[in-house]
């Protein structure tokens, strides 16, 4: 007997429900443990504090401290993308959930979308905590002339960043211990390339090759735009190229993520690696 075929509307609703369900799990799971929340806000302050003191030691202006606080907050998103998005299929496979996702009558992209929505909301709470605590502890100046533009650039940056996370999730799907090592590997080099802890990456003293490599990461572009708007007091006119670049990143990365996911799933089925644990 053939099952009735779902209409496009029913299919969309099912996928949206799956995304909502995955988001709910993420929100609930990450916020039920208070020590984790406190640590995720407090830990970056240790590193930020070290860099703010270094800035003072070498005589840079206080705005450099503001730049590093914003950088530290954005790093929280990158960490979330790496460990809770890119490596997620690896964790799910280790805990035996991946096969359940694969047999569910929904698109894998809706599951990834749910993870991204939940992750971005969770991390926004932590990033806000980092910025507020950073401002309170280090007393650095901000010059926010156009909050709406900051909001727009921030949202575009998150969309591009989490789309990149979806692409990575597909690539990481078949990893064993490489997942852990690769996620670790992508931390400090990206902190460096994105200029998260520099006053600015697009400065004449930074070699062009580094700036170009950094620009491949959406966070670099978004971070520079947010700093211009929130620290230098510039208007939206100064960050138009950034906005276009972030939209372009999303438009390129999303179809790539979809194709990569289908390819890796098919490869995993052929090689029988989708349920392989303890590699």
């Amino acid at each position: 007997m053939m099952l009735p075929k779902a209409t496009p509307r029913e299919e969309l609703l099912t996928n949206l429900r799956a995304a909502y369900a995955r988001m709910w799990v993420r929100l609930r799971g990450s916020n039920r443990e208070v020590t984790g929340l406190v640590a995720e806000i407090g830990l970056p302050i240790l590193t930020i504090g070290a860099y703010v003191i270094l800035y003072r030691a070498i005589g840079l202006p206080p705005t450099a401290g503001a730049a590093v606080i914003i950088g530290g907050a954005m790093i929280a998103f990158w960490t979330n993308v790496l460990w809770n998005m890119s490596s997620q299929w690896f964790w799910e496979r280790e805990s035996g959930n991946l096969e359940m996702y694969l047999v569910a009558p929904v698109s894998r992209m809706s599951v990834l979308l749910g993870m991204a929505m939940g992750g971005s909301v969770n991390t926004s709470i932590r990033a806000l905590g980092i910025v507020l605590l950073g401002i309170f502890v280090f007393q650095v100046p901000f010059q926010l002339a156009d909050p709406l533009s900051v909001g727009l650039v921030f949202v575009l940056t998150l969309v591009a960043l989490y789309t990149m996370g979806m692409l990575f999730a597909s690539i990481f799907m078949l990893y064993g211990r490489e997942a852990w090592n690769t996620a670790s590997l992508l931390q400090e080099p990206v902190y460096f390339l994105s200029g998260a802890y520099f006053p600015r990456i697009y400065a004449p003293v930074v070699p062009f090759a580094l700036q170009a490599a950094g620009s491949l990461i959406p966070m670099t572009i978004g971070l520079d735009a947010i700093r211009r708007l929130a620290i230098n007091g510039e208007g939206v006119a100064a960050v138009w190229p950034h906005i276009l670049a972030l939209i372009a990143c999303t438009l390129i990365l999303f179809p790539l993520a979809r194709r990569a996911l289908n390819y890796m799933e098919s490869l995993g089925k052929k090689e029988g690696r989708l349920t392989l644990r303890w590699q």
Partner: peptide
């Protein structure tokens, strides 16, 4: 893998100092 992570950390602080020197900070 063993070298990239500490090297990137080093480059972060090194570039902070280099940028500090380039903007004509105190010393």
């Amino acid at each position: 893998y063993q070298v990239i992570r500490p090297l990137a950390s080093l480059l972060i602080v090194a570039f902070i100092v280099i940028i500090g020197a380039s903007v004509g900070a105190s010393a």
